[in-house]
Design a binder for these strands. Structure first.
Length: 508
RNA sequence: GAUCUCGUAGCUCAGCUGGCUAGAGCACUUGACUUUUAAUCAGGGGGUCCUGGGUUCGAGUCCCAGCGGGAUCACCA
């Protein structure tokens, strides 16, 4: 094992501490009674006795030695607070070893320490803990990146020096990234609060959070290539789920009014800034509802989430845009949206006319594409990127949506919407197809597509059809990509920034 | 999977048309300093220049291959 000079020095410090009788990894708990951020927020110069005996713990991140007194910064889960340590305060009588040897030489930047002391304000105005006791809680054997910040007095902005920025290292060693980059940590905290706000919104409606199989004998509910695996006892091929839609609908058929699941989906496909092989989806199904009802529910839910993470303000920044999550959102049919951005009315066009239009618009197509796919290509090329504020695109061609109910009044379309924000899809919903005979025909159409070589076509799921034959109430269902939603709501532009551990190649 | 691009100290980076012992700041280390805050001051140490070949008197630098990252594209309703 190759060690750098600094790693060797830290291991020597560790041994020296042991030889002094100081356990670098003590077992007993260190009882904490305050957080750095709370002390800073609540300290009152007129009532300093409130923080007469604080006990805090965290990493020692910056050390400024100044003779017989040392200033350090302690970083706990909430942030940083300055420590003031004087030689005589932590001495054992006339024995100054704790200061001269342990603090000045053997403790390193990044070590976990616990301290007890009282809070005061230095003459430079910084709220600081005056240390009376100091204990090593865990030794750090590798030097963290030394990220320094300074407030520019002219602009008032915080400037960062020697930032830890290399994406490869940040993603491979997320623990380091989280330790030294507070803005990274903040995004993950927001992610957790987004999910929590969504869950509490659904729970308040009385809908039930459920879990359905990740290992599935038939991969259904979406069009994507699955990961395959094998169960030894059953000697059976299984797939990691690409979607959970068909299982959740079985539960609606079983009599629940509303069920939802937040969980990982797995798709064996390419990776880029908006795709990771495993990602988190929320799917919800509510009985006796249609897609119009669902649009209102989504507006309320997203506004609730945005307010929950942004001081009750539904307007969030994303790049150069301010996105307003307060409803109602604009509703635009697929055909009208294409008319709006191309000037062409395609509602009466057949496949041949659509092909001509694609050529005219310089959109790449191939011969396998049917009418629905051609419309989707036009939409993707000409419309999608313009949908900045939350916008519902509604009423899709039937060929693209084998699980959605036929439109109640528009032939050839289904009752489906997708929600777009900042030019990207973040939600997809239907009035669910509950007619088992229609559903069987749709599956059969998919089988024909598969026979023609479409590897994205859905497989026949006889057990799902059986559940519809027993009867499923009219239902509306919705899926939301949690990772993408988090990207938009935390102003991050790659999925890697909202996944703790994005997929990467093996390191060696 | 394709194309472009990057890989130098713990971190952030410089290193010219190939040419002295590969550099800087921070970090580390030794010393000074009892209210500092990118602390300061004086000294010192630290390198698989991603890996493997090749060209050359000489390669961090040029060429080839590989590994890893990023970007764009393809794929992903």
């Amino acid at each position: 094992m190759h060690l750098s000079e600094q790693e060797i020095i830290r291991r020597e410090h560790l041994e020296e501490l042991r030889s002094m009788g100081i356990d670098p990894y003590p077992a007993e708990a260190f009882v904490v009674n305050a957080l750095a951020s709370d002390i800073k927020a609540q300290f009152n110069d007129d009532a300093p006795e409130q923080f007469e005996t604080v006990a805090i713990a965290g990493r020692m991140m910056v050390v400024r030695e100044k003779g017989k007194v040392t200033f350090a910064e302690l970083q706990d889960s909430s942030g940083r607070i300055q420590l003031y340590i004087s030689r005589s305060d932590i001495a054992d009588g006339e024995n100054f070893e704790m200061y001269d040897v342990v603090l000045k030489r053997l403790l390193d930047f990044g070590d976990y320490i616990g301290i007890k002391g009282f809070v005061f304000r230095t003459r430079m105005g910084e709220i600081t803990v005056h240390v009376k006791e100091l204990k090593l809680l865990s030794k750090s054997l590798r030097p963290l990146p030394m990220v320094k910040t300074r407030v520019n007095e002219a602009t008032g902005e915080t400037e960062v020096y020697d930032a830890f920025t290399d994406p490869e290292q940040r993603y491979r060693m997320r623990y380091v990234d989280l330790t030294v980059n507070p803005q990274v940590k903040a995004a993950f905290i927001t992610r957790s609060r987004i999910i929590s706000a969504m869950r509490s919104f659904f729970d308040a409606k009385g809908w039930l959070e459920v879990e359905t199989p990740i290992l599935q004998p038939i991969h259904g509910g979406a069009a994507a290539r699955p990961f395959e695996t094998h169960h030894n006892t059953l000697d059976m091929k299984l797939y990691m789920r690409i979607a959970n839609e068909l299982y959740l609908k079985r539960l609606i058929a079983g009599g629940f009014d509303g069920v939802y699941e937040i969980g990982k989906m797995f798709r064996n496909e390419g990776m880029d800034r908006t795709h990771n092989p495993e990602f988190t989806a929320m799917e919800i199904y509510v009985a006796y509802k249609d897609y119009y009802w669902m649009m209102e529910m989504v507006e309320q839910c997203l506004e609730h989430i945005a307010r929950a993470i942004n001081q009750d303000n539904p307007v969030l920044n994303f790049g150069e845009h301010e996105i307003n999550y307060a409803g109602p959102y604009r509703r635009l049919s697929m055909y009208d949206s294409i008319k709006e951005y191309t000037g062409v009315d395609i509602s009466e066009m057949d496949e041949t006319q659509l092909r001509d239009l694609c050529k005219q618009l310089h959109i790449d197509i191939d011969n396998t594409m049917g009418r629905g796919k051609l419309i989707d290509e036009i939409f993707g090329a000409k419309v999608e990127k313009n949908l900045i504020q939350p916008t519902y695109i509604i009423d899709y061609p039937i060929e693209m949506s084998p699980l959605a109910k036929k439109h109640r009044s528009k032939a050839g379309l289904v009752e489906r919407f997708e929600l777009f924000v900042s030019g990207k899809e973040i939600a997809n919903a239907y009035s669910e197809l509950n007619d088992p005979i229609d559903q069987r025909e749709r599956f059969e159409d998919q089988l024909q597509l598969a026979a023609r070589g479409d590897h994205e076509a859905m497989a026949m799921d006889e057990d799902f059809l059986r559940s519809l034959e027993y009867g499923m109430p009219p239902t509306s269902g919705l899926g939301i990509g949690i990772d993408r939603l988090t990207m938009f709501m935390t102003n991050n532009h790659t999925i890697q920034e909202v996944l703790f551990f994005p997929q990467m190649r093996a390191e060696h």
